[in-house]
Design a protein around this nucleic acid. Sequence first.
DNA 1: CAAAAATCGTGAATTGTTTCACTAATTCTA
DNA 2: TAGAATTAGTGAAACAATTCACGATTTTTG
Lengths: 214, 214
Amino acid sequence: MTDQQKIPQATAKRLPLYYRFLHNLHLQGKNRVSSKQLSEAIKVDSATIRRDFSYFGALGKKGYGYNVEYLLGFFRKTLDHDENTPVTLVGVGNLGTAFLNYNFTKNNNTKIEMAFDADKEKVGEVIGDIPVYHVDELEDRMGSISVAILTVPVSEAQKMTDRLVACGVTGILNFTPARISVPSDVRVHHIDLAIELQSLVYFMKHYPMDQDEE
Amino acid sequence: MTDQQKIPQATAKRLPLYYRFLHNLHLQGKNRVSSKQLSEAIKVDSATIRRDFSYFGALGKKGYGYNVEYLLGFFRKTLDHDENTPVTLVGVGNLGTAFLNYNFTKNNNTKIEMAFDADKEKVGEVIGDIPVYHVDELEDRMGSISVAILTVPVSEAQKMTDRLVACGVTGILNFTPARISVPSDVRVHHIDLAIELQSLVYFMKHYPMDQDEE
DNA sequence: CAAAAATCGTGAATTGTTTCACTAATTCTA
DNA sequence: TAGAATTAGTGAAACAATTCACGATTTTTG
Ligand SMILES: NC(=O)c1ccc[n+]([C@@H]2O[C@H](COP(=O)([O-])OP(=O)(O)OC[C@H]3O[C@@H](n4cnc5c(N)ncnc54)[C@H](O)[C@@H]3O)[C@@H](O)[C@H]2O)c1
Ligand SMILES: NC(=O)c1ccc[n+]([C@@H]2O[C@H](COP(=O)([O-])OP(=O)(O)OC[C@H]3O[C@@H](n4cnc5c(N)ncnc54)[C@H](O)[C@@H]3O)[C@@H](O)[C@H]2O)c1
């Protein structure tokens, strides 16, 4: 579980991207790929890709590149792509419904198992094969799920976070604008769509673009 | 338009966050705030906040902190929050519909003006006051809109990107998993939800958490 | 009003990430 | 099979961002 702990965070964030691309290559029957080709496809500098891979050892072969199947197998293990991580979703509104309808499981090791909402109208529905329960049942139903997607109104964000944490959740993907507070062993990733849009506009206006930069 | 160009990208990404929080403080009638208080609320180190602000000059007062109204006015200008940037959305599916229903304009300087879809069923609808047109009309209707949200199926992503760019779009918020190719003067921000989820799970498993880290 | 407390702004140190540029190994071509 | 081409892996440099830590100044307290 806990790791040899050397991989930089920036690298770790790119791993799923590598995995997905390798998976697609494999489906296409390709069995060889170079850092240059990867670079063009996923728009990450080839030296960065080689450096990223090198944290895991010598995975390629000079003059040849990387063997897709081998690399894919390696990442499958590294990213625990054999076991499926169950996820819960809280707040079945506009955004929550979109996620339930989307099949995250495809080419992915996560699966939304259940959803909760406070609105009686939503409860009992099954959206994209995922059942929606009343939020009152949260504590009873969560079981050992440790990952949650939070798509409730901002006013409910902290309250629901506290309840999720009390149920044992240690990872939250937070789509509300609230900067929620959690104990130090809980990881929160914020995805703040309004800010992404504003930030894009700011960059467009103030930065003369030259190359694709994240 | 083009800027004095000194603000680090990391700082620029936080500006909308500062703006939003200051806006809320202002609504609450607060007229004073310290970097320490800001830090606690938005979970960014106070030294980082002071450093960020310092790129714009001396905005605070020693021993006192920052005047909310003054700071807010300053950011309003810096972020061009007086003019509203029009945005288009392409692909009115699960995700696109959620965005149309969401009022990005609230506390924001962007407004989705129109949406396009290839599906006859969707065309003619008005979702959250935004009209949905057929994608065939894209070139006729875009006018001078320079920002687009892309929520089409991945298979259509590059094609629609090319058309948007041909219409003069220079900023794209891309929700598809495709790493789209654009001319060097076009800025693309990727929001890859499946990868965010996988990456959260990876970090949970492999990094012993200690503090809130993005 | 004097001492204590708060707090900004910032030089310097630190930490993290990317990129250059080269070596060594392998593959490809004719 | 010999020479050319390709390409991984990596030390070192460059670049970017964060954080420490302290002086200077203002506010607050008693
Ligand atoms: N929709 C977007 O495009 C968008 C964009 C940016 C940010 N957001 C943020 O994402 C969040 C969700 O947005 P949305 O548009 O889906 O909102 P929404 O109002 O459509 O959905 C919220 C859902 O949460 C449910 N809910 C309310 N209180 C609850 C509780 N205590 N427990 C469980 N469920 C509860 C409501 O019944 C509703 O179904 C909001 O915080 C919003 O600010 C949304
Ligand atoms: N829904 C999610 O939760 C989610 C999560 C991660 C990624 N994504 C990505 O976001 C994108 C949209 O997802 P979705 O779930 O909304 O898909 P969706 O299939 O519900 O919606 C896609 C919409 O685009 C329209 N469309 C198809 N071709 C078009 C074209 N050429 N021009 C204009 N419109 C066109 C379709 O008619 C449909 O309405 C996909 O690329 C998907 O991979 C979605």
